[in-house]
Design a protein around this nucleic acid. Structure first.
Lengths: 152, 152
DNA sequence: CAGTATCCGGTCTGATACTG
DNA sequence: CAGTATCAGACCGGATACTG
C-alpha cells in the first residue's frame, strides 16, 4: 500500500494520466470507444447499441474527431449512397490495451452470473491472454516491483 | 483493424467493460482514484489537489465506498483527533494497472513539452516498464495475434 | 478538517420530431 | 441513415458559507 500523502507526486495539471482522463474520461466517450474497438463505425449503429441521445452522440463524435481519436471518413460502396463513418486512428487504436485491461478488471471484480462473455487468447498457442507489465526485453514485472521515477 | 460491424460482439448490458465504465467512467471518479493510488486519503487533500467542488467530492466518495473501491476508515494518531480517511480496497487497488496503462497512453499520445514527469521501472533491473499482453506462462503476445473468444 | 447547505448558470439526459 | 432542433427535468460546476 502506498503511504499516506498529502499530495500526489505529480500535480494533476502536469500529469498525463489526469490529462488522459480529461480527454476520454467520460461515460459516453468510453462507451463509444468500446464500440469502435469492436468495429462499429456508423452514427446509427453507435446510437442503437448504446442508446446515447442523438444530440450527445453527435457532440461526442465531434470531440473524438477533434482530439484525434476517431477519423471521420466517407465510406462508399458501389451502387450505394456514400456514408460517413468514424474509424479509430492510430492514437485511438492505442487505447485498446487500456480498455482490455479495464475489461479484465471488470471480469474479475464485477460480480456477474457465470463466465465472462468474452475473453482473449493467443492465436498461436491458444492460451488465455492477460495484461501485464514487462521490461524492454519482455520479462514480466509484478506490480509490487514497480518503482515510480520522477523527472524534474 | 477490426472489420466494420453493425454491433459489438457483446451487447453493452452484458459487457464487463461497459459495466466497468458505468462504475468508474466519470471524470471526477477517475481523478479521485488517481490521487488515491498515489496515497491521498483525506477529504480536504483530494479537494485541494483536484479542485473538486466539495458537494461533488462528497457524493463521489460515497459512490466509491458503495461500489467497494474505497473503504472509509477512521484514522487515529495519538494526541490528535481521529480523522476519517478513504483507503483503496483490493478491488480499487486492482485498477492500478489500468490507470498506469492509461498514463502510458497519455505519455505517448498527448503532446506535452519535454519528458513525461513520471515513469515506472523494474525495481530489480531498473529497466523501463511498459504494458503488454502475455500468455499464462508469461510470453508476450502482440495485439495482432490476439483472438476474441465468445462464450455462449 | 470534514463535511452539509444553498444558489445559479450551464450541460446532460431523455424524448420527440424534422430534414437532406 | 445521419444528423440538427427543441424542450423539460436532472445533475453538474463553481462559489460561498455554515457547522461540529
Amino acid at each position: 500500500m502506498v503511504p499516506l500523502s498529502r499530495k500526489s507526486p505529480v500535480p494533476p495539471d502536469r500529469c498525463n494520466l489526469a490529462r488522459a482522463v480529461d480527454q476520454i474520461g467520460d461515460r459516453w466517450t468510453l462507451l463509444i470507444l468500446r464500440s469502435a474497438l469492436y468495429g462499429v463505425r456508423r452514427f446509427d449503429d453507435f446510437q442503437t447499441e448504446l442508446g446515447t441521445p442523438r444530440t450527445i452522440l453527435s457532440g461526442r463524435l465531434k470531440s473524438l474527431v477533434d482530439s484525434g481519436l476517431l477519423a471521420k471518413r466517407t465510406y462508399k460502396v458501389e451502387g450505394r449512397r456514400a456514408r460517413p463513418e468514424y474509424v479509430l486512428t492510430t492514437k485511438g487504436e492505442a487505447l485498446r490495451p487500456v480498455l482490455i485491461a479495464l475489461n479484465q478488471w471488470g471480469d474479475q471484480w464485477l460480480e456477474s452470473e457465470g463466465q465472462p462473455p468474452i475473453s482473449f487468447t493467443d492465436s498461436q498457442s491458444r492460451q488465455a491472454v492477460r495484461i501485464a507489465f514487462v521490461t524492454e526485453d519482455g520479462r514480466e514485472v509484478s506490480v509490487e516491483n514497480m518503482r515510480i521515477v520522477l523527472r524534474r
